[in-house]
């Protein structure tokens, strides 16, 4: 992995978006989120206008981290998925490629069985995409050079006001 950074490239972002859109449709979901394990949003699909995706991303990541911590203490490798049942909205959370969190929000128009089935398929595709990202990161794409051109002035300007 290229240093202490995780990079997202245009092609893979597009493929992740497509996979999200497809999952949202196929699972009859309200919304689908793909989140970096550290709590940053990667992609969203479905009816997300009323969602505070930034806050949700941080909390889902915290939730997954806490669950992972519990698994470790119970000598389990991991708990691969979580399901929260609400009055209107249900939430299915799973880990993809040890790197990302796939969240599906759904209501009574769908079912846990259908969501699980579609998530499995989408996870396979997302895993392939994340593997492609890691390969690109290891190749040291030329795009990373953008940051070596950042000057101290650029950084100072951010804090100028």
């Amino acid at each position: 992995m290229a240093g202490n950074q995780f990079l997202m490239f245009e092609e893979e972002q597009r493929r992740i978006q497509e996979a999200c859109d497809l999952l949202a449709r196929a699972a009859n979901a309200e919304a689908v989120l793909v989140i970096d394990k550290n709590g940053q949003e990667i992609a969203r699909s479905g009816d997300t206008d009323d969602l505070d995706v930034t806050s949700l991303s941080s909390l889902f990541a915290g939730n997954v981290a806490a669950t992972g911590g519990i698994a470790k203490l119970l000598a389990e490798k991991e708990f691969s998925g979580q399901f929260h049942e609400g009055e209107k909205t249900n939430v299915h959370i799973s880990l993809v490629a040890q790197r990302a969190i796939l969240v599906v929000l759904f209501d009574q128009r769908s079912s846990l069985g259908l969501v699980r089935l579609r998530v499995k398929k989408a996870s396979e595709e997302l895993t392939r995409i994340f593997e492609a990202i890691v390969r690109k990161m290891n190749q040291g794409s030329a795009q990373t050079q953008v940051f070596s051109e950042i000057t101290d002035d650029d950084i100072d300007n951010l804090f100028s006001e």
Binding site: F6, L7, M8, E10, R14, N38, Q40, T144
Partner: peptide
């Protein structure tokens, strides 16, 4: 681990 998204042109860092 900073997250740099070349597609949405965002840098995300955690403090």
């Amino acid at each position: 681990m900073s997250f740099i998204n070349y597609s949405s042109r965002e840098i995300n860092c955690k403090i």
